[in-house]
């Protein structure tokens, strides 16, 4: 993996997607840490509402904006609820300013309130935060730890949906304006004077979105990883996710196999029956992974004898993850 980053200096984003509980957050943290030693300003961003970055780094970063952890290493775990509330207030203020009024009309105010409770708001807010981060260009590299639901890549498909959505809106707006302008021309009134602020806002949004989407689907700039463990469910799940990736034109950069008991253990005499069975099962699935996903695998991370937490442990994970020897199973 390390050579991949050396060969692709344009990379700006790494995304970790997949089912929860397999070590996504750990891998994100590890990659971020490794990169922070090589690059300037690396951000590890969690969109996982389980807020596990705080646990991994043993520091409460939830909803605190960007927190500096180490030289060049920044961590951010957003509090979507807070962001939504702030956003609502921003909209209110904008209306007040635009129309020079002190109080919003009741129906408008209520609408803004209700929109905050709207089921997709959380996800959209998170998504907007990500797009905003990228657009701000404040960090040289972004590691996104995606939420587990829908493999975390729903957020990617949402980029596309929103993009199409805005595009359609824009089309309508533009068409409407065209008709308006033709009419003004016929009426011999100043044409082209129409400065459609709404359209301008839409274009702005679209710019931001397509920028994000372009980056996300550009495998020169974005690396997509899935974390997997040698278990049946995990393999099935990853296969399914791969299909989804394909549908979305996303090239998977790599699969990281996590929590693998070292096979050498089998040689040891003192190995208990229990662990032996477990390792044998894992090896069976490792072979399956090799067959089915072999070409995607880019790292194998062993099972640690304690839970990987804290800067030191993460550094250790990073070293292993980045410098994989390329073997899935012993021949």
């Amino acid at each position: 993996m390390s050579s991949f980053y050396e060969d692709n200096p344009d990379l700006k984003i790494a995304v970790f997607a997949g089912k929860g509980g397999l070590g996504k957050t750990t891998c994100s943290a590890a990659l971020a840490m490794w990169l922070s030693k090589k690059k300037q300003r690396v951000l590890c961003f969690s969109t996982d509402p389980q807020a596990s970055l705080s646990d991994i780094f043993e520091k409460d970063v939830f909803g605190k904006g960007s927190v500096t952890l180490d030289k060049n290493l920044y961590v951010m775990e957003i509090d979507a609820d807070k962001r939504i509330a702030a956003f609502q207030e921003e909209v209110r203020q904008k209306i007040r300013d635009m129309y020079g009024i002190d109080e919003l009309p009741k129906e408008i105010d209520e609408y803004i309130n209700a929109a905050g409770a709207e089921p997709a708001m959380h996800e959209s807010a998170t998504y907007d935060a990500m797009a905003g981060l990228l657009a701000s260009d404040e960090y040289n590299f972004h590691v996104f730890d995606m939420p587990p639901f829908g493999h975390g890549i729903r957020i990617v498909s949402m980029a596309r949906i929103l993009d199409v959505w805005v595009e359609k809106m824009e089309e309508t707006r533009k068409k409407a304006q065209e008709y308006g302008e033709s009419a003004w021309k016929m009426q011999q009134r100043t044409s082209g004077a129409g400065q459609d602020e709404m359209l301008a806002e839409l274009l702005e949004i679209r710019k931001k979105l397509s920028f994000f989407q372009d980056i996300l689907t550009d495998n020169k700039r974005t690396a997509f990883y899935m974390v997997i463990t040698p278990e049946k469910m995990s393999i099935l799940d990853t296969e399914r996710a791969l299909k989804m990736f394909e549908q979305m034109d996303i090239t998977l950069t790599g699969v990281i196999i996590n929590q693998v008991y070292p096979k050498e253990l089998l040689q040891r005499k003192d190995l208990g029956d229990f662990l032996r069975k477990r390792i044998e099962m894992q090896q069976k699935y490792m072979n399956e992974i090799k067959d089915k996903l072999g070409k995607h695998v880019c790292a194998v991370i062993p099972m640690f004898d304690r839970e990987p937490k804290g800067l030191e442990m993460i550094q250790q994970v990073a070293d292993i993850m980045m410098n994989w020897d390329g073997k899935i199973t012993e021949e």
Binding site: F87, V91, I95, M121, S124, E201
Partner: peptide, 18 residues
């Protein structure tokens, strides 16, 4: 229609038209 986040962004401009 469950419009996402972005319709709120457009809301201020639409206010007089509602």
């Amino acid at each position: 229609i469950l419009p996402p986040y972005y319709s709120l962004k457009l809301l201020p401009y639409a206010v007089p038209n509602i």
